[in-house]
């Protein structure tokens, strides 16, 4: 899919909370101290953080890089599976906080871990059609895993924001996008339930790999590109093993996915995951570099997008903190403090 008018990313911003829970803490508490872990540590939101506050900081960073007045943003779309309210948009809180209100469209998006890329695709169409000069999209989550469940090792917090505009203002131009979606119940959460249910091994081949591989192949076939045409690539990262295997199966090298592969040190930031991989790649990309992003959302589907970085990257990337600045800012907490911060203690 490619819009009739050329569009792209004019600003981007990352956010990762300060706290880290080492996977060894979960092993200590739940496995007697002995066991393999899918990642080294994950980012944990502080007690005053949620998907809205994460989205606000990422959005402010994106605005700083874009250098546009917030009042010109014609859509504020926030993708998350941990919206702070069941009814009341996160997007209006973000829009108000950055000064985009009141003359703007706003809405919340949901599709498990690909809620953000889904909003991004729609924003490309919205801007290309002339419905808005600029659109802001965010993927942000404070994901929860049931205590002791394998999901608890990786379910983390973070987010990324992008301001979409026309190609001539872009620091990365969209070449095309491709989506692959089926009804696959690999992971879900029913209304009122605190924690999600997942299909364990079923989350692999029929879910993650089927959709990620098909979307990546579909996009490259449509564009006539091949893995070696890309300087860097990011695949949704629920852990380290899945994106590594997906990359290898498609013919990407470890070098190509290294920059965007953050799960080992921040966990799975859900709607933020592939979008944070892209901010990390943009932080170091050079004009002319081609970048691939492939998201995955349970339920299930993948969005694949191809970008070419422009010479505008150099003047804009220093206007806000880098993804690695947030990753380096870390305070390790133990399982007890994690339980307190995540509100897992029943106080009343």
């Amino acid at each position: 899919m490619k819009p009739i008018r050329d569009v792209g990313i004019i600003g981007y911003g990352a956010y990762v909370p300060r706290y880290r829970l080492p996977a060894s803490e979960i092993v200590r508490v739940w496995k007697g101290g002995d066991g393999d872990t899918p990642i080294t540590e994950k980012a944990v939101p502080g007690p005053d953080e949620d998907a809205a506050t994460i989205a606000i900081e990422a959005a402010r960073n994106a605005l700083s890089r874009a250098g546009i007045p917030p009042a010109r943003i014609g859509a504020v779309w926030v993708g998350s599976e941990s919206h702070p309210y069941a009814v009341k948009p996160t997007s209006t809180i973000v829009a108000e906080a950055i000064g985009a209100t009141p003359e703007t469209q706003a809405g919340d998006w949901e599709f498990a871990c690909k809620a953000g890329t889904e909003a991004m695709q729609a924003a490309f169409g919205f801007v290309a059609s002339g419905m808005a000069a600029y659109a802001l999209i965010v993927g942000a989550d404070t994901a929860q895993g049931r205590p002791g469940d394998e999901l608890e090792y990786t379910a983390s917090a973070g987010g990324a924001a992008y301001i979409i505009g026309l190609a001539d203002e872009s620091l990365a131009r969209l070449e095309g996008s491709y989506s692959y979606v089926t009804d696959t119940p690999d992971f879900f959460r029913r209304p009122g339930q605190e924690y999600p249910t997942h299909g364990s091994r079923f989350t692999g081949d029929p879910a993650y790999f089927r959709h990620v591989l098909a979307a990546a192949r579909g996009l490259m076939e449509q564009l006539g590109t091949k893995p070696s045409d890309y300087r860097m690539a990011v695949f949704h990262q629920p852990n380290v093993k899945f994106p590594e295997r997906a990359a290898k199966t498609l013919g990407f090298t470890d070098e190509q996915i290294r920059t965007g592969l953050l799960a080992d040190v921040i966990g799975n930031t859900y709607a933020g995951s592939s979008l944070l991989g892209l901010t990390a790649m943009l932080d170091v990309a050079q004009p002319g570099d081609r970048l691939l992003l492939v998201s995955f959302g349970s339920g299930a589907g993948s969005d694949a997008m191809s970008f070419v970085v422009t010479d505008k990257i150099a003047e804009r990337r220093d206007r806000a903190p880098f993804t690695q600045d947030y990753i380096r800012r870390r305070k390790v907490i133990d399982y007890g403090l994690y339980v307190r911060y995540r509100g897992k203690l029943k106080m009343h």
Binding site: G46, E57, I93
Partner: peptide
């Protein structure tokens, strides 16, 4: 930074507002 200030109970308003943190960069 804009953060949660308080929550007015489990079914009440979430109140957001300014706080300050050490300069990140």
């Amino acid at each position: 930074v804009t953060r949660k200030l308080t929550e007015e109970g489990e079914d009440g308003l979430i109140v957001y507002g300014y706080k300050f943190r050490p300069v990140l960069k």
